[in-house]
Structure formats: C-alpha cells, structure tokens
Design a protein around this nucleic acid. Structure first.
Lengths: 304, 304
DNA sequence: ACAATTGATAGGAATTACCTATTAACTTAA
DNA sequence: TTAAGTTAATAGGTAATTCCTATCAATTGT
C-alpha cells in the first residue's frame, strides 16, 4: 500500500471515471487502472464495480475509501507540520545560562528578542557550567551561554563579548585611598569567592594570581552561593571581590557602603560565548540570538 | 513521502540507531539512511541529529514522528478494514423482492439465514419488477428475487425454483363441482388480477390464455393492490384467481369460503430466480443465499 | 451505421529502491 | 598507544516498480 495508491483510489471514487481520475492525478489511465488493480489484489477486496458504462464504488470500497481519506488527511497534516518547522527560528530554543550571567544579561535581551523574533520560544535554565555541558551533550538543552572556552570537539561556540571584571570593596577598605588599582593591589587582597563550581570563582582567583590553597582558612567558609550574597558580604566588610561588569547594576542601585572600581589591567575580563553541539541543525536561530545579544549590550561592554 | 518512509522514520526514532532500525525494517542500513535523508530533504526539516556516537530526534523531528505514527495508525486501520471485508459474506446484502413472493418466501429463510450466516446483513426492499431492475442497475440494490427472465446483458441470474400456480375460487363457484381442473376451465374463467406492474398479473393471463383486452370491462376496475386484497375479492365471490404456491398458507388459514385447487397442467408455474449485475463482485454471498432458499423450501416446491 | 468513449492489456522505458562494499570518525579493549 | 569494533555516510551496480504509448474490446451517442 502506498499514499499515492490511496490518492488514485480517492480520485476514482470521486470521479467514478478512470480517465478523469488519471488526469486529476497527472498519470495515464493505464497507470491508474493498474495501480487500482494492484491495490485491490493487495487488500483482497474489489473496490470498484466496473462496466463499460459506469464505475461504481462497492460497499467495502466505500468504507475503505473513507478510511483512505483519513490516512491522507493525517499525511497532509504531517506535510503541513513539516512546512511550519522549515523555518529554523520556529520552535523552542532551550538555552542554558550560568548563574553569574543570567540575571544580568537576560533582562537586557528578552524584550528585544520577543519583539524582533516572536516565533522563537526561549526556554531558559540557569545552572553551573558543568551541568550545562552535560545537559547539552544529552540534548536536554540546545545551547549554553558560558564564560569558559570549550574543548570538547562535539561542541562549537559563537564568541559574543568580553565582560570586564570590576573590583568591589567596602567603602572603609584600605584600597579606598588608592586612586587607581594596579595588579599588586589585587595580588594580596582579601578576596571573597563564590561557591565551588562557579567559573567566576576560578576566574577571579586567576586574575588575582591566587591558587586554591590561598583561599583556605578564614575565607574558605565564606564562599557565597550567589553574587547577591557575595555583595552582602562585601557590604558587611568581610572583604572585596571581583564582579562581572553586567552585574554592576545590581550593586550600585542598592548599597552605598560598597565601592566599585574599574580595572585598567590586562586580562581582567571573561569571555562570554554561545556554545552548542556541532551537529545542532538550527544554527540560524543561534546566530539570530547572538545578534540580539550584541545589539543590546550596554556601551561599556565591547563585543568581540 | 511514503508509508514505508514513515515506518523507517519511526524505527529510527524508536531505536535511535540506524543499524537496528534497518534490521527492524528488514532493509540494509544504507537503504534506510538514504530514505531518511530523502525524507528530510522532502520535508525541508532535519529530523535527526546524528553524531558518530548517538542519534537523537530533533524537536521538529519529535513532532513529525508523532504525526507519522498517526498516519500509520490510520493506514493500519485501513488494512484491517480491508481484511474484515475480504470475506464476501461480510457486509450488507441489499436484496429486492417482488411483493407476490416476499411475504411468503422471506419468513421461510430469514431465520435459517441468520443462524447459518450471521455475518450477512440482509437489507430487504419490496418493489415491482421494473423498479427492482432499475434500482439494480443503479447499484441501489445488489440482487433481486424475480419471477421473470431477464434479457439485459448486464444482468445474470441464478435459477432457484419453479413455483406452481394454484387456482383459487369461491366455494360456491361453478368450478367447485369439477373434480379436476383442465385447461379449458381456465380459458373462460372470471379471472381476478393484481394491479398493473405485478408480473403475476401477466403470468396469470398467459396461463389462462387471456389477452390484455379480455380483462377490460367489469374486471378492469377490480385489479387488486396485493395478494391479500385479491383473496378478499375471491372470498367475496367476485371471481377466481391464480395464486403462487408459497402464498397458499395465507389463504387456507383464514378463509373457509375459498377453495384452492392444484393445477395438473403444463406451464402452470412461474420460475423464481436471483438476478444480479454481471459485475457484482460478491457472487459468493448470492450463492450462499440461493442455497439457503433451496434448503428451506417446502417439499411441495421443486428446486431447479 | 460510424465516430467517440471507456477500461483493460501488452510491451518497453524511466525511475526508484535496494544491496554489497567501502569509508571516515569514533569508542573500547588490549 | 595501538588495534579491533561500531556507526553512519558514500559509491556503484542491480532489481523492482512505476509509468508511458499503442492497442483492443465493448459500448454509447449521433
């Protein structure tokens, strides 16, 4: 059995005329006659009662024709579904974002994305880099916004922008007296860190030339679960920390006891990129997403 | 698109493995890979995300696979429908019967038919010969029980039995004195007839050697609409008539004022046969029906 | 009676599906 | 680290299927 055969079948049932049915199906009459005959043999049922004068659908024929219409109806629906998914922008885009980026970047782009590409249904999940990479590998998400380069050859990435780190310290901190922060100021500072697993923690240590062991002792117990908590610690005078630029809005607005200092030093930024499986078939939607991100960055952040 | 392709599609979606899917479909892996690729190109949608490690269904793929299942479901239902109609006995048998036969024959066969072949759904219609032939030609009925031979080459017939005519007259009729009825008794009798269109009327005239004009006059206005009415007229002494043997039950039971006389004369019977279109594909059900009729005839009627 | 129509048949051409063999990339075991 | 085993894709040739033109037999309409 064949969808084409069912089309032939219905054409004959509709026209009661092999010639006209053939014309409607854009085939010759012998072709259509042959296929109908083959179908009848396959089904073991005579579908049409032919005479030289007329063609009539038999009773079982009527029933089978009705069912054939249902089959073609569903097949047609399949084609329409396919058509509606030809545009790579259509459908859900499952995006993972690291926690130190998501709350500060997403508010900037959700509105523009929704306005420019309403057909993209963004599904966000906020998790640590490792988790995101695992889920990406398991096809549970389509792409991830990360701050670390990827080595896995299964993945590719679109570089988005460089996000500078700012130094954040209490207003009564010794560094308050310095007009400009230099590298050595960072080296020996009382750095507060995020909990383990946050890439920001390692990156901060790297910027400050610290190793894992250096943050043992008093500070080891103070690793914060979120940037918000971290800022609370800074405000409470427990030490200073490095903050990614996009998160600055979160601090300046609410806490007068905190000073934020731009770092005019080399390599004091993290590189944000959009990571996806090499085999992901809807690259277009990622390109569109990346473009929207870049268009809506504050002027202080430079795109790559 | 093709039902086979959809089977391949579902096999891959189920197994997430081209090789195993191919095995399930009894084709080679390259064949299946090729058809899936062709399908993807036709639909304009990437259905699977392949890597050397794994095969995953894309989001549009999931949707299309679900629809493909619906298509195959309906196609499967079609095959099952066809299967259930392979037996020519299954389904309605639309049977036309002439009014002078139906009420006397049908009670004899309905019960046995129902018992022996419960799958046959008999749909009866009782109409005059001409109407039945027209409806047979228009495929409105499948066959007809008639008492006249058919000339139309589109039709064929299965001879069933010869139904003798009996003479029926009032008990106080001159013929009551005769021990045996001979042809000349019939020739000049006061014959009562059924309404025009009933084949029985013409056949009775023929048996009695009468022509159309002979029944003009008084009798012309007395043509009865049914055998029952005819018997009422006989009982009321308006004349005599010829009755087909199967209808005898109807008279003997209810009216003592009527005599029924067997005719031991040549050609005093009508031939009942089952008429159908030459092209009717379920001849088997007709043969079965004919057999049931013959098996359940009273012993007084001889089958052909 | 003759031309036009209709569905079936025959024979050959074109397309399509299919198979085997092989490749390229990756994973696992030694 | 190398070797063996998997996996999906590719290439090339074969078999099956579909399709066409030409024709026939039967019927219908003029």
């Amino acid at each position: 059995m064949n969808l084409r055969d069912l089309k032939y079948l219905i054409a004959v049932a509709d026209t009661r005329h092999f010639g006209q049915a053939a014309e409607r199906c854009f085939v010759s009459q012998p072709t259509l006659s042959g296929q109908i005959k083959k179908l009848e043999e396959e089904l073991g049922v005579t579908l049409f009662e032919r005479s030289k004068r007329s063609v009539e659908t038999t009773h079982p024929g009527e029933i089978i024709v009705a069912q054939a219409r249902r089959v073609l109806e569903q097949a047609d629906a399949l084609l329409q579904l396919a058509q509606s998914h030809q545009d790579p922008l259509v459908g859900p885009l499952r995006m993972g974002v690291i926690p130190t980026l998501s709350p500060y970047l997403m508010p900037l782009i959700l509105q523009p994305l929704q306005t420019q590409y309403p057909q993209i249904k963004l599904v966000l999940s906020e998790e640590l880099t490792d988790t995101l990479l695992t889920r990406l590998d398991k096809h549970e998400i389509d792409a991830a916004l990360l701050a670390t380069p990827v080595e896995n050859p299964d993945f590719e990435s679109i570089p988005l922008f460089e996000e500078p780190f700012w130094l954040v310290h209490p207003r009564n901190h010794p560094l308050s007296k310095k007009k400009k922060i230099i590298q050595t100021d960072l080296d020996c500072t009382d750095l507060l860190l995020l909990a383990e697993g946050h890439c920001l923690a390692e990156q901060a240590m790297e910027v400050c030339h610290l190793h894992e062991r250096a943050v043992q002792g008093d500070l080891a117990d103070l690793r914060a679960a979120s940037l918000e908590t971290l800022l609370q610690l800074v405000a409470a005078g427990f030490g200073c920390t490095l903050l990614p630029a996009l998160a600055l809005n979160a601090v300046s607005a609410k806490d007068k006891g905190i000073m934020t200092r731009q770092l005019q030093l080399p390599d004091t930024y993290r590189q944000i990129s959009l990571v996806y499986r090499r085999t992901f078939p809807r690259r277009k939607v990622l390109e569109v997403f990346a473009a929207v991100v870049l268009e809506n960055l504050p002027d202080t952040i430079r795109a790559i």
